[in-house]
Amino acid sequence: MYIRKILLLVVLLGLLIGGVFAYKVYDAVFSPNTKFNNEEAYVYIPTGATIEDVLGLLDPLLVNTKSFVHIAERKGYTSNIKGGKYAIKKGMSNNDIVNSLRSRNIPVKVSFNNQETLADLAGRISSQIEPDSLALLSVLNDQGFYDANGFSPDTKIAMYIPNSYEFFWNTSAEKFRERMLKEYNRFWSDERKAKAKTLGLSVNEVVSLASIVHKETAKVDERPRVAGVYLNRLRRNIKLQADPTVIFALKKHTGNFDTVIKRVLYKDLEIDSPYNTYKYPGIPPGPITMPDISAIEAVLNPEKHDYYYFVANVENFGYHKFAKTLAQHNRNKAQYVRWIESQNINR
C-alpha cells in the first residue's frame, strides 16, 4: 500500500511537471507576444541580416524576445533570415510572427515623377527600397546595359516611365533597373509604336518631344494642344523654339541641375547645344526630363489644329494663349512680357 502511494505520488508529480512544461511550451508558441497598441507594425529586415539584427528591430515590439528566439530556433528561422518588409499584427504569437517573417514579404509601392537626371531618380528610389542612392546610381549609370538595349547616353532616361509600381522592399538595384526595362517594353505596345510611326517619329523622338510638352505645361488637358503645336512646326521644318530645352542646355552645360531659371534671356538663346531648339532644328537628341504618361499620350494623340505659337496666359495662370500667326503671337507675347517685367523676374 505504501509503495502504491509513492508510485501514485510520482505519477501525479510527473503529470504536474509535464503540465507545467506543456503550458510553458504552449505559452511560448501560441500566446500573444506583442506590446504595441496599433493594429499592426512593420519591420524592414535588411538583406544579410543576422538574428541579432532582427531582434534589434523586434525588441520595441515584443513582450519577450527570449521566447521568440527559442521558437525561431526551433522553426529554423535563425539560419534562414530573408530581407524584406514584414507585418507584425497586434496579438500575434511567436509562432505567427516567425511564420510572417519566413514567408510574407510585403510589396511596397514605389513611385517617381519627372526626374531630370538619373542621379535624381536614384535619390528618389533610394527612399523607397533598400539600396542606397550610390548603389542605385552606379547601376543606373552602367552604359553597357543601355547600349545592349538600344539606348544612347542621351536617351537612356527615356527607359524610366514615371508611374507607381510594386516592388519588394529588398529589391536590388539591378533588379529595379531590369524591371524598369520590362515596364518600358510593356508600355511601348504595338499600338503605341504604330501611332509613333504614323507621326513619322521614333519611340525615342516621341519621348523627347513629350518631355518638352511636359515641361511646357503642367495642365494635362492642355498637353495635346501643345503637342499639336510642336508637331505642326516639325511638319513645316520650323524650329521648335522651346524655352525648356534652353534651360536644360544651360543646366547641362554647367552640370548644375539644381539651378532655378524662371526666365530665359536672349543671351541664353545663343548657347551652342544640340538641346537648344532655338539654334538647332528638329527634336533634341534625348529627353530633357522623364515625361509622365499623359505627356507621352499627348504626343501620340495630339490635338489637330492650325496653331504654331503659344505663350503663357497671364489671365489664366497655368494655361497658354495659342496663335496661328506670328503677328497674333507677338501681341500675346507682349502682354506676357509686360507682366513678367512687372514681377521683376530677371532670371
Rank of each mutant, 00 (worst) to 15 (best):
Y266H: 14
E303W: 05
N330K: 03
R179I: 06
V206M: 08
G228D: 03
D59N: 15
F30G: 05
I3R: 14
S103T: 10
P107Y: 12
N316C: 11
F112E: 06
F257Y: 04
F68R: 04
I45H: 05
S79F: 14
Q143A: 12
K82A: 15
T289R: 01
M159L: 13
R263T: 12
S100L: 07
R177E: 09
I106T: 00
S202N: 07
A227V: 00
P131M: 04
Y44H: 13
S111R: 12
N163Q: 14
S93R: 02
E341D: 13
V264A: 09
Y230L: 03
N149V: 02
I212Y: 01
A87V: 14
S342H: 07
E183Y: 13
Y266E: 14
T289S: 09
E341K: 12
R102V: 14
I293T: 15
G123H: 11
L101Y: 02
L16F: 14
A158E: 06
N232I: 01
N94C: 08
L15A: 05
L16Y: 13
A119Y: 13
N301V: 04
L12P: 08
V299R: 06
I88R: 05
N38K: 07
T254S: 14
D96Y: 11
T155H: 03
V139S: 01
M1S: 14
K219Y: 02
Q328W: 09
A28F: 04
L137R: 03
G200A: 07
D272Q: 13
E270K: 05
A227N: 01
P32K: 12
K85S: 11
R331I: 09
L9D: 03
N37K: 15
G14C: 11
G144Y: 06
R338F: 00
F151Y: 02
Y146F: 10
L140N: 11
F167N: 06
E303N: 00
F30C: 04
R223Q: 13
